[in-house]
Simulated scan of single mutants.
Amino acid sequence: MIAYLKTQFMDFMREEDGVGVIEIVLILVVLIGLVIIFKDRINALLELTFKQIDNQSKEVY
């Protein structure tokens, strides 16, 4: 059973060509689109996070 699984895994690894350029470009387009759509929320979240970090760092000093 283990030998069979090992051969199946090796066959799978040999036949996979990897991720193509088109797939990478499509993923990047989707990610950039999400960033553009949620830009305001991302900025608000980052500002809140850095304010909390700043406030908590003042408590340490």
Rank of each mutant, 00 (worst) to 15 (best):
V35S: 05
V21R: 13
I53G: 04
G20Y: 00
D54A: 05
L26R: 12
G33V: 13
F9V: 07
T7R: 09
Y61M: 11
D40C: 01
M10D: 15
K39C: 02
D54Q: 03
I53C: 05
L31G: 08
E15T: 09
L31P: 00
I53E: 12
T7P: 00
D54E: 07
L48I: 06
G18V: 07
F50K: 06
E15D: 12
I32W: 08
F38T: 13
L5C: 03
L48R: 15
E59A: 07
I27S: 07
D17P: 09
Q56P: 01
R41W: 05
E23I: 09
Q8Y: 05
T49E: 05
Y4R: 14
V29Y: 04
L34H: 04
V19T: 09
M1S: 07
Q8L: 07
F12N: 14
Y61A: 12
F50A: 06
E59M: 14
Q52T: 10
Y4E: 13
K51W: 02
V25A: 08
I22W: 04
I27P: 00
A44Y: 04
K6S: 11
E59Y: 07
L28N: 12
L34C: 14
D11I: 02
Q56K: 06
I2H: 02
I24S: 04
S57L: 03
K39F: 09
L26W: 07
L28C: 06
D40K: 14
L31N: 13
S57N: 10
L28E: 15
L45M: 08
F12M: 13
I32Y: 13
E16K: 06
F50Q: 10
I42T: 10
M1W: 03
F38V: 12
E16Y: 15
I36A: 02
E16L: 03
M13Y: 06
I22T: 15
L45N: 11
L48D: 15
E16P: 01
K58G: 14
A3D: 05
L31V: 12
L28T: 14
K39E: 13
E23T: 15
L5T: 00
T7K: 09
E47Q: 11
D54P: 00
V60Y: 11
A3T: 00
Y4N: 08
E15K: 01
D11A: 08
N43E: 11
S57D: 10
I37P: 01
K58R: 15
V21L: 07
V60Q: 13
F50L: 12
G33K: 04
D40F: 04
K6P: 02
I27K: 12
I53P: 01
L34R: 08
S57M: 05
L46K: 04
G18E: 06
F50W: 12
V35F: 05
E23N: 10
R14H: 13
M13W: 02
N43H: 03
A3H: 01
L5V: 03
L5E: 02
F38Q: 12
V35C: 05
V19I: 15
L45T: 09
D17K: 14
G18D: 11
I22R: 06
Y61P: 15
Q56I: 13
L5H: 00
I42H: 02
F9L: 11
L5M: 04
I27C: 04
A44C: 02
